[in-house]
Design a protein around this nucleic acid. Sequence first.
DNA 1: TCCTCAATAGGAACAACGCTCCGCTTCTCG
DNA 2: CGAGAAGCGGAGCGTTGTTCCTATTGAGGA
Lengths: 214, 214
Amino acid sequence: MTDPLTDSAGVPPSDTPKRSDARRNQAAILAAAGRVFARSGVNAPVREVAAEAGVGMGTLYRHFPTRADLVVALYRHQVEECAEAALALLEQAESPFAALLAWVHQFVDFLGTKHGLGAVWQGDDAGFSALHQLFLDRLVPALAELFAAARASGELVADVRPYELLRAVGDLVAWAPDDPDYDVRRTVTLLVTGLRHELPTPRPPAPDPTSPPR
Amino acid sequence: MTDPLTDSAGVPPSDTPKRSDARRNQAAILAAAGRVFARSGVNAPVREVAAEAGVGMGTLYRHFPTRADLVVALYRHQVEECAEAALALLEQAESPFAALLAWVHQFVDFLGTKHGLGAVWQGDDAGFSALHQLFLDRLVPALAELFAAARASGELVADVRPYELLRAVGDLVAWAPDDPDYDVRRTVTLLVTGLRHELPTPRPPAPDPTSPPR
DNA sequence: TCCTCAATAGGAACAACGCTCCGCTTCTCG
DNA sequence: CGAGAAGCGGAGCGTTGTTCCTATTGAGGA
């Protein structure tokens, strides 16, 4: 896995006519964030990151207005890799569905290593857009590719959209910390397995509140 | 559904030789919490609850040391009801599996109405035990009943434990806010559908623990 | 009825955190 | 080399969780 600390600063040199010290600080912050997040989770106090980087709060906030911005910058590469892996898996795996399952598990592994990433991924409130958007832009298309292939091979039957699955897996993994009695991978497998069937009636018990169907 | 605000105070009168004002305050806090939680979610500031109840911080903390304690006291009845519904559904539904699906959806509805309950349900940290334990004690056995029936009828094949499913559903619902593009009920249905199949190889592509992607 | 005291109430105060604001510093370019 | 602007740092504000200590009050006994 590419190390975001060394090749850090997801900033293309071209669109950055910034001052040298600014660039230096941005890199320092990213490096520090990598260490702090790995040590204390992505919810570590912002102050801690600033301190570790040896910069002031203002500096940190100028470069990364929200925590999600920081996380996005750090993990962008990995998301890219994850997306690109889809095609490779399609060729390697013995069937499109197997590739799908494998890819999803790879995604689980990715999310799983960053404890607490889930909080950002699902986006409590504001930071929402940043990371969520990145995931959507890159990962949904990748998964769509796998879906199409698996559907063509007849293994995927359920009328489920890639986004739905991705989101579900994200939610599932978001909170799967250190419970020895619970293995998310199994659950995810179960979920993917469900794709082989047609979904039962859209609204099973349908209590019908105020919301119109569809 | 019984209203925890009116029949509030999940305190049996017998084991409560407390002072009258203590009882009164406890009830006031519960009532206030019901209103505040409904209005601002279960993560509403503790102060707000105290203010709404017209008591001091100390009083609130004496009665409910953690936020989870408060939530548990408030929703205990509903959890009980949910658990008891299992048997009824088993008789009504056309098949054990249908009952299982229906029950899970009922559970989803229950969790769904309390926005933010998920945060407490999954237990970020300390408050963990309280609510989580309540759910486990009451709901897992109920679900186990349904599992046994569905397994006997041959509809449930996957080697999955009730706890796993319950937990998965909980995680799924925990963060299903107001996204018009995503309906948890569908995902949950998908998950339950997966139960009809045998789970694929226990560890699909997980050979190497050190390098996640690749 | 009144007294006493332990249980209880109340809320000020502390700590941790997110975020903003503004005077000072340092780079860059002519 | 000098001036202007870009960037920096951290004090400080608002919010929330949690604790602590003192004043209050209910309830049983004289």
